[in-house]
Design a protein around this nucleic acid. Sequence first.
DNA 1: AATAGTTATGCAAACGTTTTCATTTCGTAT
DNA 2: ATACGAAATGAAAACGTTTGCATAACTATT
Lengths: 341, 341
Amino acid sequence: MKKNTNVDIIDVAIKAGVSPATVSRSFNHPNKVLKSTRKKIEKAIFQTGYIRNRAAQAIQGKRSGTVGLIVPTLDNAIFSNLIQAFSVEMRKHGFTMLVATNGYDLNDEYKLLRSLLEHRVEGVALIGHDHSEETYNLLDIRNVPVVSMWNYKEESKISCVGGENKEAGIEIAKHIISLGHKKIAIAFPNVKENDRARDRQIGVIEYLNSKNICIPEYWNIKTEYSVNDARNCAEELFKNHPLPTAIIAGNDVIAKGIIYAAQANGLNVPGDISITGIGDFSSSESSFPSITTVRMRPNKVGVKAANVLLERINGDREAEPIRIKVSVEVKARESTKLITN
Amino acid sequence: MKKNTNVDIIDVAIKAGVSPATVSRSFNHPNKVLKSTRKKIEKAIFQTGYIRNRAAQAIQGKRSGTVGLIVPTLDNAIFSNLIQAFSVEMRKHGFTMLVATNGYDLNDEYKLLRSLLEHRVEGVALIGHDHSEETYNLLDIRNVPVVSMWNYKEESKISCVGGENKEAGIEIAKHIISLGHKKIAIAFPNVKENDRARDRQIGVIEYLNSKNICIPEYWNIKTEYSVNDARNCAEELFKNHPLPTAIIAGNDVIAKGIIYAAQANGLNVPGDISITGIGDFSSSESSFPSITTVRMRPNKVGVKAANVLLERINGDREAEPIRIKVSVEVKARESTKLITN
DNA sequence: AATAGTTATGCAAACGTTTTCATTTCGTAT
DNA sequence: ATACGAAATGAAAACGTTTGCATAACTATT
């Protein structure tokens, strides 16, 4: 078997009886070359086993045919869905995807971004809005087309596609109301420093208020963003105050802690009390009881983000960020139930 | 803000007061350049905001710093784990990963492989052993370092890392025996055309035989590889023959069909009958009852496959395929239980 | 049949590195 | 001090494309 690694565009050109320029054009501007010539070239490509060298193309500084994606981890069903959708959509447009995982480390993310730029990706997709100053700086200086997937943010510096935290709050509140609950507690982390948590909380409270439900102070749990602290805070509530029929937690981790607290206090979830999270972590589906939560629509977000990125790649690089809101969906699971009494 | 895309190695060289050759060497053979010179270069890189151009490096034909991965889909927890492990390990060695999904279409896989080769990946990872003739051919002709992840195959043409189907059969049989079952049926697709199914079946039968358990012909279900056919075949068994206490299915899809059949016939799973699959599809964990199955160890496989690929990339390209067996693990879930009577 | 306009192709100069070979610089043994 | 080998650096020729400009081959118009 002939081992062949080195056939180049010139070999193809000779075989086809044309110049290298024409072969190149038949790839990049097929309409600029005569159909009959194209046929000859295709035949020559087949006969020689030629495979185009994108590196040599990329060196011209125009196109590399790749986009980069930096994601915290792949070990997560939602990221997987998101990436899958994004990847398929990009490929439809002729792009191959370079993927890197940063393990939620922003410093590492910066390094990965540099590495992707070394490969001259034509655009970059990131997750969320938590990025280092260095990262934003680099994106800006090199004027890289970029899109953030996951959550919508009104004042984001870069284009973004995703769900809105306030809407997530509204939706979960709506769900709890639709199950007939009236005695409702909430559990949020410190919303001063965390705009995601704040927006969610605002959504929840505004919706409840609109249904004439108010949260007394002793049903307004303030907790750290950790299973243990949430558990302790909830135990305090169970011991010292009247029992609500539902608790809306600011995220799934807190919900988990509250469920532990409830179970430890002999309460059945959802029999005695319904508990909800927001965000849908991978463990929320398989924990017991599985946690009712609200999540983004990863497929929609992936596809739309790809299109936003393509628009930035092909269009005006100085334009204002494009921001697209994608509605969120409530995932009703075992931790909530209809109120019957 | 100065928008800067065009600083090259020459600008850096000038700023540092050295030649481009030295700058290049400081990247690729840092020990060949004086420490003090390196410092000057690093400073110049920082000041100019230089980002190395891998395309220009790749064009030399030696290194591109990328490897390719083709996977059927990312919408699958096991693939995600596998990819994550593989990716992290490759990155440790300075590689960035190009990922493409083929949606289980072998033709598409070939196209994706071509596309990856256009980007001059230094190696390629694939899933399993089902690849088109064209794919194998191309890999061979271009002499691409390649590794197949997922399952071990004695006579594979390419290097592979993964679990062994016979062992999977043995392990699930062992599990069923350990639960005390004696009246055991099996359900496999046509094993003539499918060596994976055949190996699994051999593992099951040999192990059962070694425990002095034989499968009468009416407990040896032959089914298509589909939920519906499995269901029909199982119903036939339930109606016309004595009931076993356990059924070992050749894969999770068949197991699913059998569970439906059991439920339709008023049998409780696992109360009246235990049912197992092999392979762990994404739905097997969340179906009701969740299916006991046997699966590969994706993290182990990913890491080992990365190392095999690195060995091929850095080592002898004419060497025989490297084949590594990774043990499989039984995932005990709700569809099986200890026999009590 | 001559001319202008269009379309298809070829020529050759980039693109930004890496690497071989040659040269210079340095340290060390005499 | 001198000579020698080793280490560090530089000069220049690749690597395989793409593309602006020039030319050649057609088409359509008169």
